[in-house]
Amino acid sequence: MNDYILETRDLTKHYGGVHALEGANFKLRPGEHIAIMGDNGAGKSTFVRQITGVESRTRGEILFDGKPVRFDGPLDAREAGIETVFQTLALADDLDVPDNLFLGREITKWNFLGPFRVLDYKAMRQATLEGLERTAVKIPNIKNSIRNMSGGQRQCVAIARTATFHSKLTIMDEPTAALGVQETAQVENIIRTLKEAGEPLILVSHNMRQVFDLVDRVVVFRRGRICADLDIKAEKITGEDVVSYITGARTQAGFEDAA
């Protein structure tokens, strides 16, 4: 097994003149849960999009499971074992839960029919129920279209989707930003399940309590650069410390170019 499940070297993304991400060196160990924090516009989602192949990077290297990778799209990343809950939920409103879980990777029969191969609804429903059970997500009727579900339920579907497929790495971009207290608890439960299963996670979040409850390490982004890498389990670090890194009141030794 490699020392790091994910490593980025000098990962950089410019949108024209906007330097959304600049020289990010980031490492994630197997089984580790890391939170990415930072102000709005700090480049967190941009970082996620580079790793998952949604966009092509300006510069830098990504090593996944020890091997350099260059994903052509989210499907590529997913096939390699990276499951992502994007900030803007990638769900089709008019489809039901199993359809959404398996969108783009349907279980099919009669595959010789090419694009007209037949959906194996039964197998997908079965796997969906198992996935929901595994993540303790309760959705009373999975045959209902997503449209009629609450924001929390939709988020849970998106997350259950990542958890249904045993992945090598799960990334969640602000999964609880729009959720109520109970729904947030539900999502946090799913994250704990992943931790117990030893599946690594990158969690983008603004919620300090959540971060301190759940993860092992906090990486802080500021204006496109990583400005701190905090081992919150080992060192004595408080929420106020993290805030001071986020706002720029402090910069960690070794990250001076971010100042």
């Binding site: 303790a136 997500v137 309760k138 959705i139 009373p140 009727n141 209902n144 279209s145 009629n148 579900m149 609450s150 929390g152 339920q153 849970c156 109520g180 207290v181 109970q182 729904e183 608890a185 539900q186 999502v187 439960n189």
Partner: peptide
Amino acid sequence: GIGGLSYDTSKRT
């Protein structure tokens, strides 16, 4: 349910 998942069967389409 846990997490406040609510579902109202009267909304069945």
